[in-house]
Design a protein around this nucleic acid. Structure first.
Lengths: 186, 186
DNA sequence: AATTAAACATACAGATCAGTCTATTTACGG
DNA sequence: CCGTAAATAGACTGATCTGTATGTTTAATT
């Protein structure tokens, strides 16, 4: 268990990333994290002052990872229409890779208490950025179809998680495609 | 604390309904439920064999309550178009009444483990019924716009919970309204 | 080689969790 | 009025939780 390739802090964060997403935040204990990360408990509290701080760092890391992967799909396209449709292909991809576990942020939203403004703000910021991502691609000024795209996109994630199936992604993607035809979006 | 108006079993279920929805399933302990229900612990385990069984009954009760309230809005309308739009008014209503706590079923979905097929099935059945509810109103045979409505409806609930705002309901309702105009749905 | 800090193992505290058990009291139907 | 079942209070088990404290070992730098 000695001579790990990466430093303890990253091992903790990587493990937390995996476990929080796979099992949920409350269902994942500190002891399981340090055990699977191969790290002492004191080391965890050396790098993170509490479980909640680890939760915040988890969201930050997940945010970066998620958007990086998303852009791998969308940057490959030039036309706005194709960029958006590629975003839905990305959903199909993570559903396969992560066994329909849905959105880390929305999952955590369901677990936090109404008075936890810190984590709520972090979740809201992530989703606001996604909203803006669609708005930027579609250069939304007059029409507000980017929020429709956003909402269908969000629904595709959640409903895939619920039904453990890709059909919501396909339906949403098709609906967006139809909408673009209608609005003459290239 | 004696001479309660309703029997212990209902007091437990009512309290669980309120607390599970407000705080989440895992965050709500048995002790809090019996305390607020004014019931002995042995009484709880007399009527429910475990917390999970209480969880199942919670979903059942919530299902009935939710659809009953929904139909209060939709049954008041005759035209399919107006029925659907009234369903979104219902969302605005529960957002106000329940402080943007979102959907009980999707919230629980985020908390359960992937191997919990019992609770997953219960959640899926509820949502399948909602899907069918829209399909029946729109008499979906050829076109499949009812699933688009369903997905926008779902998104409206979740995004309202996330942003603690009614804007997602309004946007989704407007989008559905536009879609109906386009497809000549009365 | 000595210093320093990071990482280690592990025990412990204090709280809370679901669930069981014992024993007593209440309420109701025959 | 008596017997039965429901409901009560509350102690208790054993597990788990987050977080702290103690002391040792490792590793890198000067």
């Amino acid at each position: 268990m000695k001579h790990h390739p990466i430093v303890p802090r990253e091992r903790i964060l990587d493990t937390a990333l995996r476990l929080f997403h796979a099992q949920g935040y409350n269902a994942t204990g500190i002891n399981q994290i340090i055990s699977e990360a191969g790290v002492a408990k004191a080391s965890l509290y050396l790098h993170f002052k509490s479980k909640e701080e680890l939760g915040i760092e988890y969201l930050n890391a997940r945010h970066d990872l998620w958007f990086t992967q998303l852009r791998l799909f969308t940057d490959a396209e030039k036309k706005p229409r194709k960029k958006i449709l590629a975003a839905f292909d990305f959903l199909t991809h993570i559903n396969e890779n992560e066994n329909f576990r849905g959105c880390s942020f929305l999952n955590l939203l369901s677990e936090i208490q109404p008075d936890n403004f810190v984590l709520l703000a972090s979740i809201q910021t992530h989703k606001q950025e996604l909203r803006q991502f669609f708005a930027d691609i579609l250069e939304d000024q007059k029409n507000d179809i980017s929020d429709i795209v956003y909402m269908l996109f969000e629904s595709a994630i959640t409903e895939s998680q619920l039904f453990k199936s890709q059909w919501p992604v396909e339906k949403a993607q098709q609906a967006v495609s139809d909408l673009f035809k209608l609005k003459y979006i290239k």
